[in-house]
Simulated assay, not measured.
Amino acid sequence: MNFFEKVTGSDMTKQMKGFDARAKGLPADYQAAWEEIKSNLWLHGDFTGRNLMPIMDSALELLEVTAADGQRVEEVLGDDIKGFCAALVGDEGAKSYRDKWREQLNRNVARKLGGLK
């Protein structure tokens, strides 16, 4: 990956297009689960989202393998895809970027108003 790709994020765009192309080969219920996994995982990304690329690759591979084995998507992921995604990125109470930014803002405001560290 060169500097230009890293700055513009075009490497991630190529990778996501590859993921989506792989997902098109899955059954319809697996494709719907993949879309939901993608939308739930982005909440746990860092500023660029690069930390999620290996996690997305692994999640898609899990879907591919289990679809090939003939399992139902509910057997693999359960009923709580949001919880499944939180478990993928860390422990069950994983914080999203919104939570992190909210805490940082609250700390800054408290520091300005109350002299806290």
Rank of each mutant, 00 (worst) to 15 (best):
A32R: 15
T48F: 02
V73Y: 11
M56L: 08
K17M: 03
L43G: 08
A94T: 06
A94S: 13
M12H: 01
K100G: 05
R111I: 03
L105M: 09
M16G: 05
E36C: 09
E36V: 12
L88K: 11
T8Y: 03
G9F: 02
K117N: 05
G70I: 03
N106P: 06
V73P: 03
K112A: 06
K100M: 12
T66A: 06
E35Y: 07
R111S: 10
L77T: 05
L43Y: 02
L77D: 04
G49Y: 04
K100Q: 14
T48N: 12
Q15G: 01
T66D: 07
S96G: 15
M16R: 06
F84G: 07
V89F: 10
W34T: 02
G25D: 15
A110C: 06
D79A: 12
G18Y: 04
D20Y: 06
V73M: 07
A67R: 00
V89C: 14
S10A: 13
A110S: 11
D69R: 14
K17T: 01
A94M: 05
S10R: 12
L52V: 00
R50H: 00
T8N: 01
R72V: 10
L26H: 11
L113P: 00
E64K: 14
Q71N: 14
T8K: 00
W101F: 14
R107I: 08
N106G: 09
G9S: 02
E74S: 08
W101L: 15
A94N: 05
D79K: 13
D20W: 03
G83I: 11
G9A: 02
V73K: 06
K112Q: 08
L63Q: 04
E61P: 01
L43M: 05
R111V: 02
L26T: 04
D80M: 15
R102Q: 08
